[in-house]
Nucleic acid binder design. Structure first.
Lengths: 227, 227, 227, 227
DNA sequence: GATGAATGAGAGTTCATTCAT
DNA sequence: GATGAATGAACTCTCATTCAT
């Protein structure tokens, strides 16, 4: 409620410059602010625990706007999910693994997984929440259905190339390898809170993260190159 | 507040008397029924999404009993968490890894991790939810603070033995190895919903699970034995 | 709940002495303990704010006993009210004002009012609560209906005597005088909390009470002796 | 939490426009309606006995609005208390006692006390309830802390003037005099229910009230003028 | 496009009271 | 006479959502 007073409004004078262009920008800005605030709220409290009031307040927007742009809390949740998930897949697709040397490609992918988790902790929490609900929202998403999951195909190509040149052992399942790559980084970040509590020491310090990153690479490289 | 932990009426021995003398009023039974129902509810909907009415109904108990025994929804949640988490750690401790051959010990632990995840899917969801909340409840738990985390010590002993007899590579960090072992199984189960959606194929069929179990063992064994 | 463990039970051995007498005493003791605890609870929180659990606990008795002896919360409240109110009126009647010199009689009664309020602060709160509810419980009380309110008659006799011997002014209404006598002491104690807050200084210190007592006497004596 | 105190829409002036333009959505009107309904409910049943549903219904408002404007039942209670208490003190301050002849000033104040009690019986019940709770809410009130209690100072000035011109006896404590003035009227109204029951005759008829008012003046005037 | 006021359904929690032993 | 377990009604409070402007 209080935060609303800090909202940035264009001074009325700017309306002179152009009559129609600016309001559209404002609309988009509000939309993006709502999405950003919602991402924080949903990723820290889950769908059920999130509060639309908090989202609106954090976005310096009116609660009514939330419904104006997104229709409902659940639809907003889906929009957040789609955006975060889509961005990740998009970035992943940009890696162009097949252009790399097989060993480099695997290492790159592992490091990417780690770095992306590190840089986008919200998506970990979002996915955790969505999985708890059986991915019922993602399943309904049209946008995500359309996202071609070519990454496994790329990975398969890399594995084939590596097997041919003798770098890799034969018979590696690209899907399970992909899952393991994800797992090693994802779990470290997703469960850091309980792990730190259980082992009574902080696991996500800068030094620890560096260690973990190397460890992830090590585990995967050992596996793919094992004879 | 509840002091319920001090109530231990009707030892199981009394069941010997006869099957028909099922008492209508049994504190411990009601308590356990509530815990069981709460575990289902919390693990499928999270703390915020869970409904105390549903828990009471599923436990065939009065809603009031929930407060009688556990004080509040949140305290019940913690009780569920403590029980599930404690049971896991307890079982883990019973593995007696140090009595095994190092290679067998590692394999046993990986398989245990997989099998336990498979058999206790609720704890995965519970941990996912708890991590989303920053483990704030587990941190407060006195019971868990007291659980000695000797498993990493055992693992260290196993690694030392394996290193000495030449089975294992040197310099393996037992904590990160433990995390990786957990990660490979946990992530597969915890994220199966979104993974299945993303890759558009069911990942938790019996056949797939068998494959995954072998894969997990393979990855870890490759790592620890890599020169 | 916790307090219950401190309950004093007669050792079983004492049962040898006499077979029937002791249990009755215990029953009466429980009854009295409940009444005492209830008086504290009702006088500090009112009828609605009082909690039967608290009363039972403070009485070191089982909640069920409360219902066994008094039937309901409201009946217990009435019992408390009757006891406190009856005791006050009983004591008052014992003053034997008519045997005293008129001036002494008035002074005695004022001081008695003050001292009784001071010594029995609960009754002030009980009466305040009962008045808020329009005295609906006291009105129903059979015991109080039977209490003869001869005090005003005594007071009238005193006033007559004082008027005759020239000590008192004529035409004093005994009922209003009685109300004023009560008011001066009662209000001082009943409203001490808000008065202390409003005037930002403690009004019920020992020194202040002494002053107030003298003031009450002074006001009433001035009135009755004024020409 | 509510921040409702900063809302002051629709000054009374707007009523000039026309009687028919009664708006359906009027924040201040809803607020006042809730306050008024709450005053009735709290003064007849106390804080614990009052029901928020009843308050909302009596205010012809939604229950949710109560929380929207006041945050909680207890905060609403405090708002009611502050308003009633503040109004009384404000009116009192407006008496301008020091501009009157000392005898008139005292008589005026006594009569004011009586008339205000008579006209605002709710505040008597509110204060009774608040005193039962040890004034814990009023103590927390910031608004009341700021109310300068200059009345006692005025009274002191009046007493000094009256002492100088020979009307009053010397050595009268203004605070205790003030308390006694209040007591004589307050107690008569606050305890009328139990008094009427005890003496088995109605004490608050129009005729009785007239008598009582004169009696109160009489008692106080006798005291201050007694030699 | 934006806002404060309003809402009904339902959430968690508490209460006085009663049952079975 | 005494107790722990159990209950249903009712209470305070919260939520996502919509209306009127």
């Amino acid at each position: 409620m209080a935060g609303a007073t800090t909202k940035l409004k264009k001074p009325a004078a700017s309306a002179k410059a152009g009559p129609a262009a600016e309001p559209i920008r404002d609309a988009e800005r509000t939309r993006q602010a709502l999405l950003a605030a919602a991402e924080v709220e949903f990723s820290t409290k889950g769908l059920a625990g999130a509060r639309v009031d908090v989202i609106a307040e954090q976005a310096a927007a009116n609660k009514r706007m939330l419904y104006y742009y997104f229709g409902s809390k659940e639809d907003l949740y889906l929009a957040v999910l789609e955006r975060a998930y889509g961005a990740m897949r998009e970035t992943e697709r940009g890696l162009n693994l097949t252009h790399l040397d097989p060993l480099d490609a695997i290492r790159t992918l592992v490091e990417f997984k780690f770095d992306y988790c590190q840089a986008h902790k919200q998506i970990i929490a979002l996915l955790a929440g969505e999985n708890m609900l059986g991915a019922k929202h993602l399943k309904r998403s049209k946008r995500l259905r359309d996202m071609n999951l070519s990454l496994v195909d790329s990975l398969r190509a890399v594995l084939d190339a590596g097997e041919k040149n003798g770098d890799f052992r034969p018979g590696i399942d690209p899907l399970h390898l992909y899952i393991s790559m994800s797992a090693l980084s994802y779990f470290y970040f997703s469960n850091s809170a309980t792990l730190s509590t259980a082992f009574d020491r902080p696991l996500v310090s800068a030094a620890e993260q560096k260690l973990r990153r190397a460890h992830c690479v090590d585990v995967i490289m050992s596996y793919v190159t094992a004879k």
